[in-house]
């Protein structure tokens, strides 16, 4: 096997990807490319890379402007695998690199196995409804990796290796401003209990009842995508699913949620799932541990009474 490259959005990602590379490499060399300064490159070396390149965020260009230089280098060195963070900038970069190298790219690849014949990777279809397994013998394959898929190991500060950087090319895109994300008001990811509000709750005013229940049981309130994105009843950070938050609470109670695969993806790792949905056959009910096939208002009112006792 030739080298494994890792391309990371930041230092925590670089550590995760270094761990992924170590798991898959069978002794092959890891070469790291990290968004950050020289210290970030050195950190990648301490976490297992043999060589590391610092790719600092340019002031007036997107970070993705390193893509042509990376494609050029990859075209010459032909790494077997290029692992990238499944973050937005890296997904963009992965797609463009794949096109420039005419290489396959697997989005959020799981169950990756490497053999002399090539790479086998599973990816998700229809928001988690199915898993597709595919194999490629392409010279170079790209895979974006989820943040939680590999645990990074401890740093070994005695490790040393070559540190470098790559040139930027003007991609014709000029950055005129950057605004950091405003701090989230709720931290759904840290909550042990989460209530999810769906379109079955037809009036924004009804959220009060649900918030009362949340308070009574010490839960945070999240929602399905339409509630945040189309109705805008809650901030975008609150929606759960494949394109929103992915949670692992001990208890998830879905209120008026149909349970489409894209939503379910965000809560499938919850320990216990309860659904309140008047449609007995709804996917949410059928994929819950317990369900109450009734009007949500009756059920939530009764539940509030019961827990206040």
């Amino acid at each position: 096997m030739r080298d494994i490259w890792i391309i990371a959005e930041n230092t925590p990602w670089a550590r995760t990807l270094a761990a992924a590379a170590a798991t898959l490499s069978k002794g092959a060399k890891t070469i790291a490319f990290v968004n950050g300064d020289e210290a970030a490159a050195k950190d990648a070396i301490a976490h297992g890379a043999a060589e590391a390149y610092s790719l600092p965020l340019p002031a007036d260009a997107p970070w993705e402007a390193y893509t042509p230089a990376l494609a050029d280098k990859a075209g010459k060195e032909k790494p077997s695998l290029i692992l990238l963070s499944a973050s937005r900038r890296c997904r963009d970069m992965a797609s463009r690199l794949a096109a420039l190298l005419d290489a396959p790219c697997f989005s959020e690849g799981k169950n990756i196995t490497v053999s002399d014949a090539g790479v086998t990777v599973s990816t998700m279809l229809y928001g988690g409804l199915a898993v597709k397994t595919a194999a490629t013998s392409a010279e170079t394959a790209l895979i974006t990796i989820g943040a939680k898929d590999f645990e990074h190991g401890a740093a070994d500060p005695s490790r040393s290796g070559k540190v470098g950087t790559l040139p930027l090319s003007s991609a014709g895109v000029t950055v005129t401003g950057r605004k950091p994300r405003v701090a989230q008001t709720v931290d759904l990811g840290a909550a042990a209990k989460v209530l999810g509000v769906g379109r079955g709750v037809s009036e924004q005013g009804d959220l009060v009842v649900i918030r009362n229940l949340a308070k009574a049981i010490g839960a945070e309130v999240g929602c399905s995508r339409p509630i945040a994105e189309f109705f805008k009843w809650m901030p975008e950070e609150c929606y759960i699913g494949i394109s929103g938050q992915q949670l692992k609470p001990q208890l998830y109670i879905a209120v008026g949620i149909s349970g489409q695969a894209q939503h379910y993806f965000g809560i499938r790792d919850a320990r216990t799932i309860v659904s309140i949905n008047k449609d007995k056959e709804s996917l949410m009910n059928q994929n819950a541990d317990y369900f109450i096939p009734a009007d949500w208002k009756d059920a939530v009112t009764e539940l509030l009474k019961a827990v206040q006792k």
């Binding site: 396959p104 279809l125 409804l129 819950a288 109450i292 096939p293």
Partner: peptide
């Protein structure tokens, strides 16, 4: 395609899906 699809399968779910009103219980 550059990758050959080997299988497309739904993952197993292990949820019990217990209907709490199955025997005509009230809410």
């Amino acid at each position: 395609p550059l990758a050959a699809v080997q299988s497309v399968k739904a993952p197993l779910t292990s949820r019990k899906a217990v209907n709490l009103m199955a025997d005509g219980e009230s809410v």
